[in-house]
Design a protein around this nucleic acid. Structure first.
Lengths: 211, 211
DNA sequence: CCAATTTTGTTACTCATTGCAAATACCTCC
DNA sequence: GGAGGTATTTGCAATGAGTAACAAAATTGG
């Protein structure tokens, strides 16, 4: 709480800390120092302390950080545990996979329904899930107070779907279509481009260290 | 080719350029300037020129960049189009989704087979694909000259699978398990943490701009 | 064919981020 | 309860990334 401007770089490391601390907690570890975190995670110890200090003095000199406490603080910072209600739009491969993936629910992200425009997959129970027709999207979002939209539709529809979701009042868009979806101020967008990461991997494989 | 040290930041923007240029090419656009790219992609024009110039002078003063040519150059830089043979290890939701996703094949990434350790899903044709038993992984990788491993197994198995794949000679690991898989020097690893991006989105939704 | 315009390649500058080291605070053990 | 050790703070230096400004070069139009 000491600096109002938290950099993107810091934010993007928080989930990693969260993951690491969850592991420690599961192992029953009570306390951890920045130097141990550094050794385990491959980040500079100084950077870790600095990052955490952006949000408050969680550590104690001469002792380190209390694992459970720190984990919960980061959880609060990231907004994990707040109840989110989401819809998945696009019942293709990725859409179905995300919808069926249960780990998100455990963290409080409830993927409440999945929609598709293709009549051939709608209203049939595929592999245990029922795909709803896109025409019901608006009603569902409003009646269930959906605040998060997951877009897994083909790229040509992505922006239009995003626009509709925003109009319906969602506060966040998690987009998997290979375009950069945009939204008006006040709505948060996270574009996930799987192939981008594959291309970066491919670049590294080609150049392998030196260039 | 003017600077041997290309920063991560530059590399991570290349796929975005590639995507954008592919769109332009599909529309039949012949030439593009850095200022147009800037306007369309929301990046600083100066940065775009600088990024591209890391790899050579692709542009022409007074003219701009030739779309088709630049796209192909970036394609080469990223190593897209080279033939990769990959295996997917873990036939859960994400594994199946990636395996069935055909766009990768179009870019030269051939996902040749999918494996799982769970006997109940093995050797049965599920939704058009056949899952192979994990015991056949080694033979398959060697016989088919697999150079890329995609890990979509539970996190407790991820590192062990990675180690085996590396031992079998793959040169790249594309990991979707929620752990940071590591590999010996010479093998490239790209860890994709979907929930990380969800958490970052969740943070932004909570703080929404100001903090 | 020449001048005006466009647009890149490149250098210089600013700002953010990372890394380091001294200082401070707290725990632990005797 | 005090001394020593441990680990965070905090301020500062160095590195790196992003932006702006400019000069060189090529195109375009008359």
């Amino acid at each position: 709480m000491r600096d109002n401007r938290i950099s993107e770089a810091v934010i993007s490391r928080l989930p990693k800390y969260y993951r690491y601390l969850s592991e420690l907690e599961a192992k029953g570890t009570q306390r951890v120092s920045s130097s141990k975190m550094s050794a385990d995670m491959g980040l500079n110890a100084s950077q870790i302390r600095r990052d955490l200090n952006c949000f408050g003095g969680f550590g104690q000199q001469g002792y380190g950080y209390q694992v459970n406490n720190l984990k919960n603080e980061i959880k609060k910072i990231l907004g994990i545990g707040k109840k989110y209600t989401a819809v998945v739009v696009g019942a293709g491969n990725i859409g179905q996979a995300l919808y069926k993936y249960t780990n998100f629910a455990e963290e409080g992200y409830n993927l409440a329904a999945i929609f598709d425009a293709d009549q051939s997959v709608v209203d049939k129970e595929i592999d245990g899930i029922t795909v709803r027709p896109i025409e019901e999207l608006a009603d569902f979002v409003i009646n269930n107070e959906v605040n998060l939209g997951v877009i897994t539709a083909p790229k040509r529809h992505a922006q239009r779907i995003a626009d509709e979701l925003v109009l319906l009042g969602v506060k966040g868009i998690w987009n998997f279509a290979p375009v950069d979806v945009v939204a008006r101020k006040g709505v948060c967008v996270e574009n996930v481009h799987l192939s981008d990461s594959l291309f970066v991997l491919s670049y590294r494989m080609r150049t392998n260290g030196e260039d």
